[in-house]
Amino acid sequence: MDELADLTEELVAIPSHEDETAAGDAIEAWLRAETDARVERDAVGNVLAYKYDPTDGADGPADTLALVGHHDVVPPADRQTTGEGITGEYVVERRDGRIYGRGAADMKGAVAACMLAFRDAEPPAGRELAFASFVGEEIGGTGARHAIDEGFDPDRAVVAEGSTGYSKPGVTDVVVAHKGRRASTLVARGEAAHASEPELGVNAIYRASDAIDIVRELDKPEATVFGETVSGSLAVTIVEGGETWNVIPERCEVTIDERTVPGDRADLGRVAEAVEGVEWEVEQDLPPMGCEDDAFAEATLTVARAVHDELGLDAPEHVIKPHATDAGWLAVAGTECLVCGASESGEAHTDTESVGIDVLDRCYRIYKGVGERAF
């Protein structure tokens, strides 16, 4: 456990909100020093590693299981750096069994657990074990998308994002599905006129209002994964239109936050078709994830339950995560994914971000156990 805590502190101390290079350097150097794996660093800074023992006589691995994380973080708060604003070194503290610092929970602690599990696990015959720490997760999964485009395609992956405290406090659950996020804008266009003669123009705000009425009536995305209902959501979050009080507005923008689910999305295209002068634009589309490999999901939960039982903890469950992760990009590319990690709800991105050392150890045991288990 000391090695895991020390490695977590080392990674957390390295600033990586603007440039992930130094953090990637540390991960790469550790993997080269501590393992005999094939270690790669791609053009955008992702760190990838693979190990496979061909002693079974096969020409190549029958399947690949990846342990996946990311080493970029969101900008730190003032209290999380030694300098002014976000320009200083990161502050890392260990107290009361927890490690405090930007990225401790999201997700350098889990990356450290993956690194140790990757080193220590002895995969079954025919299994290639992979490790990946991506850049750019916090800005839309740019690193994961690049790796996928360059051929990163494991059969299965455990993505080490937070899953602790979902079914009950103090338990690290196994996420079988998570929501995605589609950010859209409805742009309503009209014709300007003086407000004293509104009939001479076309009010873009009125057109936007008609569009909003349709959005409110659309069915929300919904799916079922492992018998659990995954419900999405749809909400207008920003309306911007008009320039001054006495001019009929010629443009109005409506921002929509949609949480998507595996296999279903709201029919927003219908809005633009129904209202004259309204166009629909997609700004961001982070895909959802839903695992369809029952054997993988059940085996991982069995490992997680065995670890919890050994530690005298309540049993984890299969759960649904509300937040998008890099698992969505991997799932779209054909990888069967699960999410399991140390971060608790409400820890990530806060100015008091921290992670429990005992939970990191628990995750290490789960990752190692899954790496060694046949499916």
Rank of each mutant, 00 (worst) to 15 (best):
E122K: 01
K168N: 07
V44E: 03
A315S: 03
D358H: 02
D59Q: 06
L129F: 01
C363F: 08
V230Q: 04
V174C: 08
V176N: 10
W30Y: 10
D173T: 08
G369N: 00
L234N: 05
A22W: 00
A266F: 10
V171G: 01
E353G: 01
L4R: 01
A157H: 09
I27V: 04
A160C: 10
C291W: 07
T164K: 01
V339G: 03
G227V: 11
L338S: 05
Y100K: 08
V355Q: 07
R119G: 00
T35A: 05
Y100R: 11
T81K: 06
V247P: 03
E228S: 11
M289N: 05
G136Y: 09
D36V: 08
V355H: 00
E276Q: 07
A208H: 09
V176S: 10
V247C: 02
Q284A: 07
L218D: 05
V247M: 14
G242T: 02
F226E: 11
H349K: 08
G126N: 14
V12N: 09
K220E: 12
C252H: 05
P124C: 10
A193K: 05
S231D: 14
I238R: 15
D257A: 13
E40W: 12
R181G: 06
I86S: 07
E10V: 06
D326E: 09
L313G: 05
E34C: 03
G371C: 04
A295H: 11
A121I: 07
T55S: 13
Y52M: 00
G88C: 03
R305S: 09
G97E: 12
C340V: 11
E258I: 13
V47N: 00
G263M: 09
E197M: 15
G103S: 00
R216W: 10
A105H: 09
G45R: 04
F296E: 08
G140I: 10
R98G: 05
T21V: 13
A304H: 15
T164A: 04
E250K: 09
E40A: 13
G88A: 12
G60A: 12
H318T: 15
R362I: 07
D326S: 09
R265I: 13
A49M: 05
G57M: 06
D59I: 08
A306I: 14
I357A: 09
L186A: 02
V239L: 14
P221E: 12
T244S: 15
L338V: 04
Y166F: 15
Y364L: 15
P15R: 02
V370L: 08
T64P: 05
H146N: 10
H71Y: 00
E344Y: 02
D294E: 15
G103E: 01
E258P: 01
G242N: 02
G269A: 14
E283I: 10
